[in-house]
């Protein structure tokens, strides 16, 4: 247990909507071992954002959590008081959001924002400022001392994301959540940011929960990967296991669909036919059955259990389970 920074067990999240109860996440298990980078991959609407909001306890007001626990450094986040949670956020637990423009305050200088978030430390302003300068330097921003006096709009997109990362890591958290931090960036910048994250992670020694829908980025950066489909974890394991020997048909298809995996030039790219099921009226049995190319009778009625396909490689599929 103590080897994990974050352990999510049997977590479900529902949203109350006009159409009825939307079961956004169902019985999710995720482990983030100390000092490792765990990638969460899934398509839009699969519950990636719900997962993050649950961990940082910022769920919408119409959400409720019927069951499950989120164990962070030995404490169940879901049972903490609002005060205790506040102490955790930005200190032990921090986050880098997708859009660096909207996560920085446009009317305050970078320096003001970076010293403000050190409100917990009993240090002089000069010391706090020095720390911000050091942090900016470590994320590769040239001439950090003078740039502290600039506003977010004076930085380019890549720079802003570097600043957001610097701010998130300033308190040396034990867990950094990165919510698609490279989606808004160009390809050449994306590579820079990934390398920066990896390098900072190894110096600080924190764990990272990296959310993305970009398979290439996950393969490049992460140690473990969790594949989510329509609110359920369908497969998890080390990156090389999952990418080399995918066990779940969804993972298989997802990898097949990525144009980067198709070496031969083709006019007919593979797709996954069908749509994500309606999470208000859940189908019985396997969640992926309607789009699965290897569906068997058992998939219709029986929900597949999480099984051990290989060492630390879990999959939820009837095809892999012994009868």
């Amino acid at each position: 247990m103590s080897k994990n920074v974050l352990t999510i067990r049997n977590l479900s999240v529902n949203y109350q909507t006009d159409q009825g109860t939307l079961q956004a996440m169902r019985n999710v298990n995720i482990d983030v071992p100390k000092g490792s980078i765990v990638g969460v991959v899934g398509e839009s609407g699969c519950g990636k954002s719900t997962l993050i909001s649950t961990i940082i306890r910022l769920l919408a007001t119409n959400a409720d959590i019927p069951n499950g626990e989120v164990d962070f450094e030995g404490r169940d986040i879901l049972t903490l008081s609002e005060d205790e949670m506040r102490k955790l956020r930005g200190d032990r637990l921090s986050i880098v959001f997708q859009d660096p423009m909207s996560s920085l305050n446009p009317v305050l200088t970078i320096g003001k924002q970076m010293t403000d978030i050190q409100y917990r430390d009993k240090k002089t302003m000069a010391q706090k400022r020095q720390r911000s300068i050091n942090m900016l330097e470590s994320v590769g921003i040239p001439d950090p001392a003078s740039r502290l006096n600039q506003y977010p709009h004076e930085f380019s997109g890549g720079m802003r994301q570097r600043i957001a990362i610097a701010m998130a890591l300033q308190a040396e958290p034990s867990l950094l959540i990165a919510d698609e931090p490279t989606t808004a960036l160009d390809a050449t910048l994306e590579v820079q940011i990934i390398h920066l994250l990896k390098q900072l992670q190894s110096t600080i020694g924190c764990s990272v929960l990296f959310i993305s829908h970009h398979l290439g980025v996950i393969a490049e950066l992460c140690d473990y990967v969790v594949v989510i489909y329509a609110g359920e974890v369908v497969e998890e394991g080390t990156v090389s296991d999952v990418f080399k020997r995918p066990q779940h048909p969804y993972t298989e298809k997802l990898l097949e669909c990525d144009p980067a995996n198709i070496a031969q030039k083709t006019r007919e790219l593979p797709t996954i036919p069908g749509n994500v099921p309606d999470l208000v009226s859940l189908p019985s049995g396997c969640i992926f059955k309607d789009r699965c190319h290897t569906k068997i009778d058992r998939c219709d009625n029986e929900r597949p259990q999480r099984i051990d396909a290989a060492d630390k490689h879990y999959v939820s599929c009837h095809l892999r389970s012994p009868q």
């Binding site: 390809a187 050449t188 970009h214 393969a219 990418f243 080399k244 990898l255 990525d258 980067a260 995996n261």
Partner: peptide, 24 residues
Amino acid sequence: ALLAANPEPDPDALREQLELKGEV
């Protein structure tokens, strides 16, 4: 560099390291 900046979904892929510095 653009071609190299394309992370492949293969954890063992040996990419040509032609990383660009700076920004546009």
